[in-house]
């Protein structure tokens, strides 16, 4: 790999834009294809399929054996609610290599003392979320239990194609939430995509156990489903 290719690849990754490195194993020939350039690439069908799969692999094309190394953006986790569960969820998510951001307009909750080293945004969702550019490589959880905060946050996340959306609350709480979102005109299929009650059913009780249940469910969403790649 040439230094220029590596620098260009790292720049794409830093900007959260997918890219594929195509290597001819026999000759060592190599090139970087940015997501935005796939459509006009001679191998666009093959590259597009590989990017959608989110996995790297070897393909035969034009009589050559090519290794396609897919560099999808690192997964992110955006939490709305700087609550006790979030304090447990942030370190677990970071251990799984997620970039973590916590949003809560209540400054008593979103304090650096409660979340050391975690990026905190003490703003309402309508201010905090749009600049985060939530994308298909983002998981989103609403954890405040307060409809004034959770509902607008969920509405925004549902419009951004997140690979996972979860909301804290009992079945009863969620049924009321579904009614409110329906009344607000959110499409039924989008409402049905919300994971609630949140997390895998492992009988979790403590905040740390609930964090594990949530990250288990997010991992399943990331690894068992195809993440639709958004061309930059």
């Amino acid at each position: 790999m040439t230094p220029q290719t590596l620098f260009a690849l790292n720049a794409e990754r830093a900007a959260r834009r997918p890219a594929i490195v195509v290597t001819d194993i026999a000759s060592g020939d190599q090139r970087l294809v940015k997501a935005a350039d796939i459509a006009r690439d001679p191998l666009h069908d093959v590259l597009d399929a590989q990017l959608r799969s989110g996995k790297s692999g070897t393909v035969e094309a034009g009589g050559k054996k090519l290794f396609l190394n897919v560099h999808a953006p690192a997964a992110r986790l955006v939490m709305v609610g700087a609550v006790h569960i979030s304090q447990a969820l942030a370190p677990v998510a970071r251990m799984l290599d997620y970039d973590v951001t916590v949003v809560d307009p209540r400054t008593a909750f979103a304090s650096p003392e409660r979340f050391p080293d975690v990026p905190l945004i003490a703003e309402w969702p309508d201010v905090a979320l749009p600049p985060l550019d939530i994308d298909p490589y983002t998981a989103f959880v609403a954890l405040t239990h307060d409809p004034k905060i959770d509902d607008p946050a969920l509405t925004h996340a549902l419009s951004r194609g997140c690979f996972y959306i979860g909301a804290l609350g009992s079945r009863k709480t969620h049924a009321k939430r579904v009614e409110r979102l329906r009344a607000a005109g959110i499409p039924e299929a989008q409402i049905a995509s919300i994971h609630a009650p949140i997390g895998l059913d492992i009988g979790a009780v403590s905040p740390a156990e609930i964090a594990v249940a949530i990250m288990g469910q997010i991992t399943a969403a990331l690894r068992l489903r195809k993440v639709e790649a958004k061309a930059a």
């Binding site: 790999m1 040439t2 026999a26 060592g28």
Partner: peptide, 14 residues
């Protein structure tokens, strides 16, 4: 596949 980070070595196959 093991490769050096450096200028392309054209024609040098693996």
């Amino acid at each position: 596949f093991v490769e050096k980070l450096g200028e392309a070595a054209a024609g040098k196959g693996a």
